[in-house]
Computed example of a mutant assay.
Amino acid sequence: MASGPSTTRRVDRRRFAAAVACAALAPAWSKAQDRSQPLYLTFDTGHMGVAGLVADVLARHQVPVTFFGAHERTKEGDGSLGDHWAPWWKARAAEGHEFASHTYDHAYWRADLPDGRFRIRPSAGPREGQDLTLDAAQYCAEIERGARRLDVVTGKPSLPLFRAPGGKTSPRLLAAARGCGWEHVGWSPAGFLGDELPSESVSNDQLLARALRNVRAGDILLAHLGIWSRKDPWAPAVLEPLVTGLKQRGFAFRTLRDHPRYAGWIARHARTR
């Protein structure tokens, strides 16, 4: 669903309902809604504690999304891109979702260095919390490693896109990534859905109301498959009413394969497994 020709299929709603009911066929996403009001819902990995709930909501409401995956620490299993979660990823691919790298070790950009290299700090993996110095090729390899692991667990090529953890980048970092065939995807101001914010200061009701009020056509929305720090999890309370509320406003959900900014890039840099 991000670069290249769209893989979205037109299906009869009754066929879709039957497929969901018997779990024998993957849902196919209808494009009957007005394409002039698209939204692009994206999920970054996290502790995966709400991954099952997210998948259920997306299937129930026929919402295609783009997942950005890093190999993060999880509440259960061997990490978000580990073997424990591989069946979950494979099922999402069968449903028609798209995937892109979030770097493998969820590596934050910290600074550009005078010699042209970058200071990076992974928040996962064996060097978690350590400041590392990478050149452009090494940073590209970190993106590629995440993409290749997604290729394995999903069974389909991930998109030639990436999202830097925290959205932290520099012009030099973005240029280096583009030189290796990776285009960065951030999110829209109103698309920051707030699931990372402390629930003590921002309630789920407030986050839902804000999103329903402020989201506009063309926005890229950001949520996560689990945030360790938020005490009142966002997804169980907000995701379903947000999806239904936005659909009632006439929005149609798409993956980044259909995004006008990225479709051409994806077509020119299409990956194979």
Rank of each mutant, 00 (worst) to 15 (best):
1 M>F: 02
3 S>H: 03
7 T>R: 14
7 T>Y: 09
7 T>F: 07
12 D>N: 15
12 D>L: 14
15 R>C: 13
23 A>R: 13
30 S>Q: 13
31 K>V: 06
34 D>P: 13
42 T>Q: 04
43 F>W: 15
44 D>N: 14
48 M>W: 01
48 M>L: 08
49 G>E: 02
50 V>W: 04
53 L>Y: 10
55 A>T: 02
59 A>L: 11
60 R>E: 00
62 Q>P: 06
63 V>G: 14
65 V>Y: 09
65 V>E: 12
69 G>F: 09
76 E>H: 06
77 G>N: 12
81 L>H: 09
84 H>M: 08
88 W>L: 15
90 K>R: 15
94 A>N: 08
94 A>L: 12
95 E>V: 02
96 G>C: 05
99 F>K: 14
106 H>Y: 11
110 R>T: 03
111 A>F: 05
112 D>M: 10
113 L>M: 07
114 P>D: 13
116 G>D: 00
120 I>G: 03
124 A>C: 05
126 P>E: 01
128 E>W: 06
128 E>T: 06
128 E>I: 03
128 E>F: 08
130 Q>N: 05
131 D>S: 01
140 C>I: 12
143 I>F: 13
148 R>E: 07
151 D>A: 08
152 V>T: 03
163 R>A: 07
168 K>L: 14
171 P>R: 14
172 R>Y: 07
175 A>Q: 15
180 C>G: 12
182 W>M: 09
183 E>P: 03
184 H>P: 05
188 S>Y: 00
188 S>A: 10
192 F>Q: 00
193 L>Y: 02
194 G>S: 12
197 L>K: 03
199 S>E: 05
200 E>G: 08
210 R>T: 12
222 L>K: 14
225 L>Y: 11
227 I>H: 01
230 R>K: 02
232 D>H: 09
240 E>S: 11
241 P>L: 13
246 L>C: 07
247 K>W: 03
250 G>E: 02
256 L>D: 02
257 R>E: 10
259 H>N: 00
259 H>W: 00
260 P>E: 09
265 W>V: 01
269 H>K: 15
272 T>F: 04
273 R>I: 13
